[in-house]
Amino acid sequence: MEIYLDNNSSTPIDERVLAIMENVYLHSYGNADSRTHNHGERARTIVENARKQVASLLGINSSEVFFTSGSTESNNIAIQGLEEYAIETNKKHIITSAIEHKSVLETIKMMKKKGFDVDIVNPGLSGQVNAQEILDKVREDTLLVSIMHVNNETGIIQPVDILGGELEKRNVLFHVDATQSCGKLVEEIRNLKYNMLSFSAHKLKGPQGVGVLVLRKKRYRLPPVKNIMYGGQQEHGIRPGTIPVALVAGCGEACEIAEDEYKENSRKLKSLKGTLEQLLNDSGADYHYNGEQNCCIDSTVNICFKGVMSEALMLSSKQYCSVSNGSACTSKSYSPSYVLEAMGIPVEDIESSVRISWEPETNKTEFIDNVSKMIEIAKSLAV
C-alpha cells in the first residue's frame, strides 16, 4: 500500500481530535452565539476553551485569537482588512516575497490594483529571503510586511525573527503566515514579534475548514484590521458567520496535542529526515535538494532528480508514495513552480523536482520500503 508523503498539503486528522469533534457534533449542537439557553452556553464554552488551547500553544492571550475558515481567509483578512487604516494614514506601501502562498500574493496583487504600492522580494538559491533586502525597502509610508515562516514547497525557514524585531522598531505592521510552522516550530513562534499571524488546523492534524487569525495587542489595542465580510458580530466582528463549534473544538484539541507532544514530534521528524538522506545517499541516484538544508524544517524536502520528469515519477510511483511537485492550490496547473522559479532554479530542474513531506507518526519501516522503491523508479526514468 502507498505511503502518504504530502503532509504539507494536509495532514491526517488525529483520532483524539476526531473523538472530540464527534462528541460536539452529537451533544453540543447549539449556536455559540445563542445567549438565551443552555445549549448555546455549552457551545460557547467549547469555543472559548478552544481559544485558550490555541493561545496556550502560541504563548499569547486568548483575546488575540480569532477563528476563521483557514489560512487563506486569515491571510485575506490580515491584508485586506488594513485598507481603511491605510487610507486614513496615507500608508499604502506593502512588502512581501515572491514565494508566499497564493492567498497572500493574489491578495496583495489585488491591493495593488486599488492603488497600493507593492514590493515583491525574490529569495536566492538558498530559498530564504534576505532580511536586510526587505528592511532596505521599508519607507515612511510602508503599511505592512507579510512574510511566511516556512515555505510550503521547500520547507525553508524564513528570517521572520530578524524581521519582527526590526519592523517593531520602525512601527511597521508585520504579518506572518505560520501555516507550515504552527505546532512544529513552537518555541520559535512564541518568541516572534508580529502583529498578525495565520494558520490552518489541518496542517497540524486538525480538521479541514477551520483556522486562526492572531491579532496581537499593543498597549491593549488590536491592530487596525477591519472585517472584509458582513453579516454579524461573531468573533468581535472580525469574522462574521456562525462559528462551527465542532471544527473549532477540533482545532483547539489539535493545538493542545501539539503543545504536549511537539518536542517528541520534532525528534521523530528529524529521525525520518535523516533516514531519507541516508536512502538518497546510498541509492546512487543523481539528485540535489532545492534550498539550503541548514535552514529547512525537518518535515519537508524538495528534491530534484536530474533528468527525471516529476510528473512521470509521481505517476509511476503512486502505488508506493503520495508526493507532490508543488502547492496543492496550484497542482492543477502544470506550469513550473513559481516558488522554485523565484529562487532562480533552471526550468529543467524545476520540472524534475518533487516535494516529500511527512508527519511524526509516519511509519519508519513503510517509509524506508516505499521511498526506496520511488528512488529506484526515479533512477530508471533518468535520461
Rank of each mutant, 00 (worst) to 15 (best):
E359L: 04
S327A: 14
L276G: 05
G183E: 08
E106W: 03
I87K: 15
V308L: 03
Q208G: 09
E253W: 01
G344R: 04
V245D: 03
K306E: 13
G307C: 06
G307Q: 06
L125P: 00
G344Q: 06
F66T: 07
L272H: 13
I147M: 12
N281R: 08
E106D: 15
E351N: 10
S126R: 01
I60F: 03
R42L: 15
N130C: 11
S198N: 09
A382S: 05
I156V: 15
E359K: 02
V24M: 01
Y230F: 07
N152L: 03
I162S: 02
R16F: 06
G127D: 03
K114P: 08
T242P: 03
P12A: 07
I189M: 08
L57V: 04
S9M: 04
P240C: 00
L280H: 12
N290L: 12
E2K: 09
K169L: 07
E277K: 12
E73M: 09
Y194T: 07
K109I: 03
Q158V: 04
I147Y: 11
V172E: 05
S126Q: 03
I156D: 08
I87P: 00
S271H: 11
K226N: 14
S299G: 05
L213N: 01
V248H: 01
K113T: 11
I297W: 01
N31Q: 12
S333C: 11
L82P: 01
S126N: 12
A382T: 08
D117E: 08
K92C: 02
D33R: 10
E277Y: 10
V214D: 02
K137S: 11
Y230D: 00
I120N: 09
A131K: 02
L58R: 11
S310L: 01
I189L: 13
V339C: 05
G250P: 05
N151G: 11
E277M: 14
R42M: 12
N8K: 07
V210N: 03
S322Y: 10
S324L: 08
E376Q: 06
K169R: 15
A43W: 02
E64G: 05
Q132E: 15
L144C: 05
L215K: 08
G326D: 13
T68V: 12
G40H: 13
V212T: 10
L163R: 04
L163P: 09
I60A: 03
A86E: 05
G81C: 04
D349Q: 07
L222P: 00
R239G: 06
M229D: 07
G274K: 13
N363H: 02
L247C: 00
E235T: 02
I350E: 00
K226I: 06
M229Y: 12
